[in-house]
Every structure is written in structure tokens, then in C-alpha cells.
């Protein structure tokens, strides 16, 4: 039973990835005029353009190039960067880990923090602290991540205090986690952006659950308040919240781009911006696919949580 539901979800995930790959690849077909000329500039000689066309496989029909590219994805071959001439996989190798460190740290802090604060707010709803926290989460949820990041830099790295590095100090090649202090501000920025959404969602869901008949029933059975919340209320809120957490974690994959650019952090985001600036299509395609993969994985995880916390889905599905 359980396996069947998950199997269905897996199939759907595969469908999403295929569709995204079509979209991502299709977009490059929109490149105006001669892609090679666009890349090499107006002064390029015809020989060089022909060579690049050959190198990029641009002479093949589109569908062939698509399958070639898609096949490459499965074996970790993301093609050749048209800007650097090197392999995209090699270019992204270390950066993937650097970005995952950032996202992972942000997720590890903001998910429990968001759930905790949300439950707290729901239990004290209407009170002064609840209102203050709602206001704060509205403010942080509103601002774009680079605004929050610059605010943090102004406070902790330049104008007010100078206790943390404003940018990443690690020289190219050195793993970012060798200097933990340079991770603090980028991680904090992501946490401040992501947590408010989780808090708001958890608060809304918890309030709904706390108003439900079975929570009232539990109280009327004489169940102690702590057990009412932990045993009866919270499990019901987790399923829906997992969905929102998944959306937020997937969003992290996008938000990390700006944050990396701001802090000159050597991750995927930085590579993506470079790719866009130099019109390095292969790099942009590869990163888009990676980001979509992150989306699919976290959503699958949320589905599992949803099924596990809901016996109706577990048995009936």
C-alpha cells in the first residue's frame, strides 16, 4: 500500500524532471540568431564560429541534441561550458557541496525554529508576544534576501560592529567550512528569510488543530495540556507543515543565488550568475536541473511525512 503511493509519487517526480528538462532545453532554442556568434561576439572569424558550432553540437537537429544532453545528465555529464571551455561537471563539483552546506545549515536551524515558534504563537494567540512575532515575521517575509543580507553586513561587518567577515575569505579551492565564521552571515540571511514562512504556516495549522473537536475532546477527557499538545495536536499539524517546509526548502535553492552573490560565496548561485552574465547556456541548464531535482526530492520527503502522520492515507491509499 505504502509502496504503491510512493511509487506513484516517484513516477510523478520523474515526469516533472523530464518536463523541466524539456523546458530548460527548449528555452535555449530561443537564443536569438547564431548562438555561437552571440557567445564569441561580432569580431569572431567564421572558422572559430564553425568550430564552436561543431564543439557544441549545434549542427545536429534539436531533438538529437536534447537526447544527447539528457543522456549526459544521467551519467553526470553536464556538457562543456562555452565560457571557460571546461567540463561543466568539474566546474560545479566543489560548488555543489559549498551550496549544500549553506542550504543544509539554514534548513537545520530554520525548520525546528519555525515549528517551535509557530506552536508557541498558536498557544499564545492574540497575546502581545504573538502579535509582536506576527509583525516581525511579516517584516522579514517581505524583504528580499539581499536587503536582509546588506542589513546584516551593515550591522555585523561594517558600519556598526566589525566582528564578522562581510564576504567569503576562502581562496578558490579551499573548502568553505574551513573558516566557519564566513558561513555565519550568509546562513543567518537565509534563516531570516525562510523561518517566517514556516512560523506563519505552523501557527495557522496549529490554531486550526487546537480548535478541532478531538483536541477539545482530549481536554474534556482530562488529558494534561502538555500531552494534548504533543500527542494530539502537533502530529496533525506536521503533515500540512511538511508541505510548506518543502516549498521553502526548494525556494532556498533559488534564494541561495542572491545570497551567494552578495557574500561572494563560491557556490552554485555564484556560478549561475556568472553563467547568465557570460551567456554560458550549459552552466545555466545544469544548475536549473539541479535545482529542480532538489525541489523533487524535498517534495517526496514531505509526501512521506504527510503519509506517515495520517493513518487515513496510510491505510486507504
Amino acid at each position: 500500500m505504502f509502496g504503491k503511493v510512493i511509487g506513484k509519487r516517484l513516477l510523478f517526480s520523474a515526469f516533472i524532471l523530464i518536463a523541466v528538462s524539456l523546458l530548460v532545453f527548449g528555452a535555449t532554442l530561443l537564443l536569438p540568431g547564431d548562438a555561437a556568434r552571440a557567445i564569441l561576439g561580432q569580431q569572431a572569424t567564421p572558422e572559430r564560429i564553425a568550430a564552436l558550432n561543431e564543439q557544441l553540437g549545434l549542427n545536429d537537429p534539436a531533438w538529437l541534441r536534447y537526447f544527447h544532453w539528457l543522456g549526459g545528465l544521467f551519467v553526470g555529464d553536464f556538457g562543456t561550458s562555452s565560457a571557460t571551455g571546461g567540463s561543466v561537471s568539474a566546474l560545479l563539483g566543489d560548488r555543489v557541496w559549498a551550496s549544500f552546506v549553506l542550504m543544509g545549515l539554514a534548513a537545520i536551524v530554520s525548520v525546528p525554529l519555525g515549528i517551535g515558534l509557530g506552536v508557541y504563537q498558536a498557544l499564545h494567540r492574540g497575546g502581545r508576544r504573538d502579535q509582536a512575532m506576527t509583525g516581525a515575521s511579516l517584516v522579514f517575509a517581505a524583504m528580499p534576501e539581499f536587503v536582509i543580507g546588506i542589513g546584516l553586513i551593515a550591522i555585523f561587518a561594517t558600519s556598526v560592529f566589525q566582528i564578522l567577515p562581510a564576504v567569503t575569505l576562502a581562496p578558490p579551492g579551499e573548502p568553505v567550512w574551513n573558516r566557519p565564521e564566513q558561513l555565519i552571515l550568509p546562513t543567518l540571511t537565509l534563516i531570516l528569510v525562510v523561518t517566517p514562512y514556516i512560523v506563519r504556516m505552523m501557527r495557522a495549522t496549529m490554531i486550526e488543530v487546537l480548535d478541532s473537536g478531538f483536541v477539545e475532546m482530549a481536554r474534556l477527557k482530562g488529558v494534561p495540556e502538555k500531552r494534548v499538545i504533543l500527542r494530539h495536536a502537533v502530529p496533525h499539524a506536521l503533515g500540512p507543515v511538511a508541505q510548506v517546509v518543502a516549498i521553502q526548502l526548494a525556494w532556498l535553492a533559488g534564494g541561495v543565488v542572491v545570497v551567494e552573490f552578495l557574500f561572494r560565496y563560491p557556490g552554485l548561485g555564484q556560478a549561475l550568475i556568472d553563467g547568465v552574465t557570460y551567456r554560458d547556456v550549459q552552466v545555466v541548464q545544469a544548475i536549473s536541473m539541479l535545482v529542480a531535482a532538489v525541489y523533487v526530492v524535498v517534495n517526496l520527503a514531505a509526501d512521506v511525512v504527510g503519509i506517515l502522520t495520517n493513518p487515513k492515507l496510510r491505510s486507504a491509499a
Binding site: G213, F214, E216, M217, L220, P235, H236, N310, K312
Partner: peptide, 17 residues
């Protein structure tokens, strides 16, 4: 224990999980 309650809608009052 001493005062027990039987609710209006059992579908909503039993904990589904």
C-alpha cells in the same frame, strides 16, 4: 473520570491519528 463528555460529532471528536 467523574464527569464524562460525549460529543456531538464523533467523526470530529475522535483523534483520527
Amino acid at each position: 473520570s467523574r464527569i464524562a463528555y460525549i460529543p456531538q460529532d464523533p467523526a470530529l471528536s475522535l483523534n483520527p491519528a
